[in-house]
């Protein structure tokens, strides 16, 4: 897979049975559809809503179709690129933003996901335990 932003090959990181693709240059993160099944119910409802933005959609790294800009999470602050068939692209720090959002809204997160997000993208400025 190639990063939709920098076009360089990405590498894969597996932790606690969950997998992500990472870009070595821009530190963007790709969540596959399969992994999203765990993420989306946790962020409430369909989890995604159409975003009001002028940013251009990027091509999906798997199917090359243009991805839609979407807001994710209870605070609707995090902007991601969404390919409805393949997965989601988070720019650098956007996953941390989503984690923080989830913590602030104290949502019930799947324990496996919470452990994964907390371990992989610790929310900065809070105590880690």
């Amino acid at each position: 897979m190639k990063c939709p932003v920098c076009r360089v090959p990405t590498y894969v990181v597996e932790y606690k049975g969950i997998e992500l693709d990472l870009c070595p240059d821009c530190a963007g993160v790709w969540f596959d559809r399969g992994e999203l099944d765990l993420l989306l119910p946790a962020v409430g409802g369909a989890g995604l809503s159409e975003a009001q933005t002028r940013e251009n959609g990027r091509p999906c790294p798997l199917c090359s179709r243009t991805m839609a800009k979407m807001n994710i999470g209870p605070g609707r602050r995090v902007l991601v690129d969404d390919c409805p068939t393949c997965g989601l692209w988070f720019d650098r720090h956007e996953v941390e933003d989503l984690s923080r959002d989830l913590v602030e809204h104290s949502l019930d997160v799947d324990p496996a996901l919470a452990e994964f997000l907390g371990g992989m993208f610790p929310v900065k400025g809070e105590d880690e335990c």
Binding site: E14, Y15, L20, M120
Partner: peptide, 18 residues
């Protein structure tokens, strides 16, 4: 964590995000 590096990877190193 386990890092999985593709054969066409361009950098000489990979960072563990955790």
């Amino acid at each position: 964590t386990v890092l999985k590096i593709p054969p066409d990877f361009q950098s000489s190193h990979a960072t563990c995000p955790r």
